[in-house]
Design a protein around this nucleic acid. Sequence first.
DNA 1: GCCGGAGGTTGACCCAAATCAGGGCTTGGC
DNA 2: GCCAAGCCCTGATTTGGGTCAACCTCCGGC
Lengths: 248, 248
Amino acid sequence: MTVRQDIRSSGIPALCLSCEARHHGVCGALDPDHLARLAKTSSRHKIDPGVELIGDAETVDSYSNLLSGVVKLTKSLSDGRQQIVGLQFAPDFLGRPFRVKSTINAEAATAVSLCSFPRAAIERTMKESPEFEHRLLKQTLYELDEAREWMVTLGRKTAPEKVASFLLMIARNIDSSLEPGARSACFELPLTRADISDFLGTTNETVSRQLTRLRMDGVIRIENNRHVTVDSMSRLEQRCGGRGATAP
Amino acid sequence: MTVRQDIRSSGIPALCLSCEARHHGVCGALDPDHLARLAKTSSRHKIDPGVELIGDAETVDSYSNLLSGVVKLTKSLSDGRQQIVGLQFAPDFLGRPFRVKSTINAEAATAVSLCSFPRAAIERTMKESPEFEHRLLKQTLYELDEAREWMVTLGRKTAPEKVASFLLMIARNIDSSLEPGARSACFELPLTRADISDFLGTTNETVSRQLTRLRMDGVIRIENNRHVTVDSMSRLEQRCGGRGATAP
DNA sequence: GCCGGAGGTTGACCCAAATCAGGGCTTGGC
DNA sequence: GCCAAGCCCTGATTTGGGTCAACCTCCGGC
């Protein structure tokens, strides 16, 4: 409480205020001294869709908090085949600790604004504040869970199930007012059809076909290619291929 | 050094000695006091292939270090489709911090021996020793990298490429004497054909066909279904579909 | 020895999704 | 207004790998 007050009054970027909203914010854990010191080194950036964040000279040696927008993490094979291996939403933390060269590309999927810190500042904070590292561990564990969830989708689901699962995941991440038992949802798709297919391991034609099928069946509506309304969340869930059953 | 001496003389299980072998061992980071206290709570187990480790009453409330053997982490859909989302080799650390119910199944793929600690002891150590948590963060980051690497394989590689990639990964994990530029390798497959297909998102028939194709082409030899000799690592690598190129 | 089951291989067939191709809508530049 | 470039949709065709089925080998039990 006091911490957050202090942040607000000292003009530290808004990201730190929102960190507690999702469990993988990393700043909320800091005491006021560390926060203030970290804040002095921070800088804000606005990034256009399609711009690379990692591999770019300006940001390669920094860590950032994502303030708004969506960032896609991709890996490619040498012949051009590409796979999206993760999506980051505000207020996720961007950057890979303990590693100089990343094998992952990060690219703005939508317009993105972020608040970045020099590598040295973050690593110093990490050393001095165990609680900060603890938060980072939690975010990493969360991302690992997400990645493994998608491995099931990539390896075992059919094309219709993949697209339904994707819509559900986006709905839950974008439409933050969404309750677990909500009957409908409404959001802007942060990705093009081609991006979605890179995420799902299919082609843009297949994504397009499955979306029209969902439209025809009255499960969703789409306006302007991007604005999606899910009329029946339950019917969308049914098409995801059966949520993980741990016991046989 | 002294630490490792102390461990040996105090009869602490061997796992702690091997932790420094791979970067994701977690015990090497502890000071002697913590180590000794942790060691008192430890117990050793031998597990047969096919036995579930998580979901089982005896081990659900504990963390373990894997001493030998291979453990597969799986997720299933309600209709029975299954995906292996991770493999753990000695001396990996098993267990999911900060979470009571796991959505993941862990099962011994081969005969396994492990050394387990009660949940409370590990969590206490984690609180008191930031260095311990730091190691855990590193292991988690490493597993995240592995998971993302496999997402590319699952989403974008063909069946022949998948099988070649799998063999290469196993070779690198099992045959620990393997140098990056080695010309050949030799190891026991820790998984059945069905397991391999669950890992690669295909069927056992496809795995079998691709293995015979590799045999016919003189890239590998197989004895007793499990013992694999890679005669030409370079030709195997060529069939993996082109290692990740970050820049286009 | 006989039997049954698990794991592995191979062939024949078929289908879901990739590929190829064409066309429409929107947006921005000139 | 006109044109070009993205992005999206849809139809026709092809194919990689899934499905089904048969058979083999290796064990362990009795």
